[in-house]
Design a binder for these strands. Structure first.
Lengths: 338, 338
DNA sequence: TTGTAAGCGTTATCAA
DNA sequence: TTGATAACGCTTACAA
């Protein structure tokens, strides 16, 4: 179909190996400059496109990165995927994207199939804390974690500075006069949920506020789950005037719960989310939330994995934390005197 | 690293070719049943994983499908991508996903790079009507269009039944008593925008309603663009009591415009969207919209492309239309007497 | 039913 | 600076 090195070589009356060397940026310096030009021109003219299966077979590098996402339909992830794609493709790499639905079995399965595809490395966005295959996998592949860090193994990661993000949320509420602030926390098995809950407790403590009985965790990142949990939390203590959700879905579920309890947001209760997913500016009420730089998380992760692929230098394990910012909208308001 | 056919052959004292035949479902019937069992067991024991680069090089099939999406961060697409992924991966194929940002140059570029990766076919979700490379590409690759059909070339496609969807929207409004119904149409260069505008005109005509001066097209599928267009449309004719947006973003922009003009939705004006993206149930007001089965569009497209890859039979060009349904929420209400 | 052998398109090593 | 050669792991005529 498409022209091969051999075709170019024949046309030019030179050896295929020379053509290969001339076309490969890493070896073209070994070739006579005139030959290089000649070869490049011929290659362009015959629109030669290198066959990645052939070179991959020879070099055992697929120029392919496995990207493991819990669920692409969660609006948090497409932005990160975009960042990954753009940066990887600029470097000649192709991301292979898969979903796990937060199911460890499914994750094992997709990782195996990416591994069968001979990916050169992994970017993992799955946030389970106890991660059976992580230790094993990280011995055999370059890995970058995104949107989470690892508890056990020391691995490169790119995530938001959760402590900072939660602090922004809590201090925003504090500044509005709120003192009884609750937290609808993420699932305990989730790395981000865990981190944000810890950050919440610490920040509250720093302000001399108690969190006893004001933290409840969902068992899945869904609006419905959050609604149930928030319903119980809010009914248990009517003095709660503000809630920090561990992500936007949880904040949305909390808004729904408040509404069911006839507590108006933000009039009676202020609610803050986390992530700033698309359309959070037009929900009812517009959600005050902590914006994490999704695109940058993705592109930074791509850069980290690429840097691991040039193995000349053993890079130290980089754990990047990107700084989130608070976006103030309509779901938070000053505490009203009662 | 991982075991090869040769390793298994050596261990079993048979020839690699026999191992290959035994392991390949399409040729295993040529091999002694006992040998097959023996080989399978050995392969499992040595956890043999076939090398796709090697087999791809030999067969010139990558078992890979290029999936070209305008923008993954548009919530319309992740659902379709999920459907594609699930169905393809079940068949042993891997989707290679790329974005184009609706930019024809970028599209040419990503198609070229997928082509360089030797994809076995394409699923295209880009909705430009004048599609320079479509004719050419379709001669060299199996192709399935999703979320659109082709104007010129006759190509397999999977899309919503736009006529039906728009009819649902218009008749819902008609049933609520609305007679002066406007359409904020998609960009003229877009296939879906064009189709839906035509469907709108036809349905209105069927009901004896005029559309003159009540259709305006955006130049991009964005909320902001729709807001501007709707602002002009609604101010130009205050008798408009209902609007059909060509997609959810356009409906949201129209809601914003109505709000800016102090016309309350749904009290003063009813607005219907199209697609039912995630979270359209919790925007303000909850959006009445036409739901298209995103997942099914994706999985059906995957099935179509797979069927083209078994070239034994020349399948007739299938143009699948999936039936959308109306989801009634808070953005539409009965016409009020004035 | 199995073995032989060639080749897919590259690249790395060695020799010239 | 270039050429020759072998090999990456697999599949597939063809022969036995």
């Amino acid at each position: 179909m498409s022209a091969t090195l051999k075709d170019i070589a024949k046309k030019l009356g030179i050896h295929p190996a020379t053509v290969s060397r001339a076309l490969n940026p890493r070896t073209s310096h070994l070739v006579n400059a005139a030959t290089v030009t000649k070869v490049r021109k011929a290659a362009a003219a015959m629109d030669y496109v290198p066959n990645p299966m052939a070179s991959g077979l020879r070099t055992s590098r697929s120029h392919t990165i496995g990207v493991v996402i819990p669920d692409l339909t969660n609006p948090l992830f497409p932005g990160m995927v975009r960042g990954i794609q753009d940066t990887l493709s600029r470097a000649g790499y192709t991301p292979l994207l898969v979903n796990t639905d937060n199911d460890p079995d499914e994750e094992a399965h997709v990782v195996a199939s990416l591994s069968a595809r001979r990916v050169d490395g992994f970017i993992l966005a799955t946030a389970r804390r106890d991660h059976p295959l992580l230790a094993d996998l990280s011995e055999r592949y370059p890995i970058v974690l995104i949107n989470r860090v690892s508890d056990s193994v020391q691995l490169p990661s790119v995530a938001a500075d959760e402590q900072h993000g939660i602090r922004l949320a809590v201090e925003h509420l504090y500044g509005l006069g709120h003192r009884t602030i609750a937290h609808v926390a993420g699932p305990p098995w989730s790395s981000t949920g865990h981190e944000r809950a810890q950050a919440f407790a610490r920040t509250m403590r720093d302000h001399g506020l108690s969190t006893a009985k004001h933290v409840a965790a969902v068992d899945g990142w869904s609006i419905d789950s959050a609604r149930d949990v928030a319903l119980r939390l809010l009914s248990s203590d009517p003095s709660i005037t503000a809630v920090v959700g561990a992500n936007d879905q949880l904040a949305l579920g909390t808004i729904a719960a408040a509404r069911a309890l006839k507590r108006r947001c933000p009039r009676d209760i202020s609610i803050v989310g986390y992530n700033d997913m698309p359309f959070m500016d037009i929900v009812d009420p517009p959600l005050t939330t902590v914006r994490v730089p999704q695109n940058e998380i993705g592109s930074e992760a791509a850069r980290l994995i690429l840097s691991q692929l040039v193995e000349d230098v053993v890079t130290p394990v980089k754990q990047v934390r990107l700084t989130p910012e608070l976006v103030i909208r309509g779901s938070t308001a000053p505490l009203r005197a009662r």
